[in-house]
Amino acid sequence: MDWTVIAEYMPLFREAAFLTVRLGLTGIAIAIAVGIACAVVLYYRIPVLKTLVSFYIELSRNTPLLVQLFFIYYGLPKIGISTNPVFCGISGLAFLGGSYMCEAFRSGLEAIPPIQSESAESLGMSRLQVMRYVIFPQALSISVPALMANVIFLMKETSIFSAVSIMDLMFTAKDLIGLYYRTTESLFLLVVFYLIILLPISILGSLLERRLRYAGFGA
């Protein structure tokens, strides 16, 4: 292990880490939004939309992200829709993540016993109010563990962005190995930087889980 090489590579990895985090978090944020929307559609069994959402979930969960990225980046331009790598990475992550997030939220929503919404409605709350004040906060609380697992999973999935020429951490390491053959140093930095990104997320997840554990009447 040559520490001067590590010092030399550090800026490259830092830059790649920022890119990884930026693309990852943007993709995940969109995925959460998509997930909530889809989960609500499924929860209320809205006709037509419900079928579309189920179709999307099956499609997105049963194809690898790599295939989705290839489709967006190399496939779409063939039919005249050109994309750039960054857009492709974010949308790929959002497409994949949306379905996982949806299932996480849905499990939360469906865990709330119907008696609660019935009670709330009998108190005169509107459907929206029931969702906003009774169901959603509890559902969120229940789905936090699954949610955080998804966030970490999606963050790690960014490591295949190299396929669409995004210089993320993984590609930077691979590229440096190919250029200068400093394998040990590159792999060491790779592991360290992924840990720097993911450990805080994992710890934040545990904190959130603890703070948000208020769901379940009387539990």
Binding site: M1, D2, T184, E185, L187, F188, V191, V192, L195
Partner: peptide
């Protein structure tokens, strides 16, 4: 542990 293993390999 992971970091040590890796640097150990380097050594």
């Amino acid at each position: 542990a992971l970091a040590l293993t890796l640097s150990g390999c380097g050594g």
